[in-house]
Amino acid sequence: MIVYILRRIGQSLFALAAMAILVFIGVFAIGNPVDILVNPEANQAEIAATTARLGLDKPLWEQFARFVGHLFQGDLGTSFVYGRPAMEIILQRLPATMELAVTALILAVVIGVPLGVYAGLKPDSIGGRSVMAGSILGFSLPNFWQGLLLILIFAVLLGWLPAGGRGETVEVLGIRVSFLTLDGLRHMILPALNLALFKMSLVIRLTRANTREVCLQEYIKFARAKGLSSTRIVLVHILKNIMIPVVTILGLELGSMIAFAVVTETVFAWPGMGKLLIDSINLLDRPVIVAYLMLTVVIIVTINLIVDLLYSALDPRVRLSQVKA
């Protein structure tokens, strides 16, 4: 087991290193890094100063060593727009994004799993078919378009919920959160739902497929032959089996949710790091873009690592084979 964990951590470090190299190539090796890292409005003297400071006149390998060194210190340059370290600005926006992503993930599971199980148990019923049709729709509607429709319906036509912004926030342990105030919650419903819908469809389809698969297994019939109630069969025998793939996928999807938050945050003007990224792209504030990329890569690699370890803890079969290995 320890061997497995170590090997898995090694793989994660490999992924991080690979991404760092790719970013380095993207920023330093291809094109002129001065264009990327120096404020476009700077004059010649400033450019020369920055070039020297960043060591852009040094050989490539030395530049890379420097880049990695800065990376370990979390130093990814200074924002042209804000004039502060890019990492600091990103980290400031991180809680808002995480709050949104986690809420959306919870919504996707809490709504998606029961619907998927239902559609799996009764695949031919009207209810089951509607759930599936709905999930195809949820799958097909691009994220930003769902967001626009939500705004159009709930904010513009019905006027029930605000169309954007984060609303009132409270500070908990130095982090500003929305979900503890009524106003914050009202602001969070639409973006969280928007971010959740796509994953919800995924969860529904996955849960349904697995439920159907598990239902055909002999052990379900045997469980029925033991005289168990259908509630127990569904809640224990089926759910326990389908939770393994669902948890795996969902863990991996948390990473993609953070990435997709870019879209939702833009649509709903949610002040997270995704919105910051789009603003930075429009303002050509490249150090922030690079910082966003590196931070997201670290988050995703970490999540993937945790999910893999969690997976082996959940499935007794995997656990055993790894002990043997």
Binding site: A15, A18, M19, G26, V27, I36, L252, G255, S256, A259, F260, V262, V263, L277, S280, I281, R286, I289, L293, T296, V297, I300, V301, N304
Partner: peptide, 18 residues
């Protein structure tokens, strides 16, 4: 594996940003 472990939108967005 490396490619697939990162969301497509993230990679595409960054590439186009640069």
């Amino acid at each position: 594996d490396l490619q697939l472990s990162f969301p497509a939108i993230l990679i595409a967005l960054i590439l186009l940003a640069l």
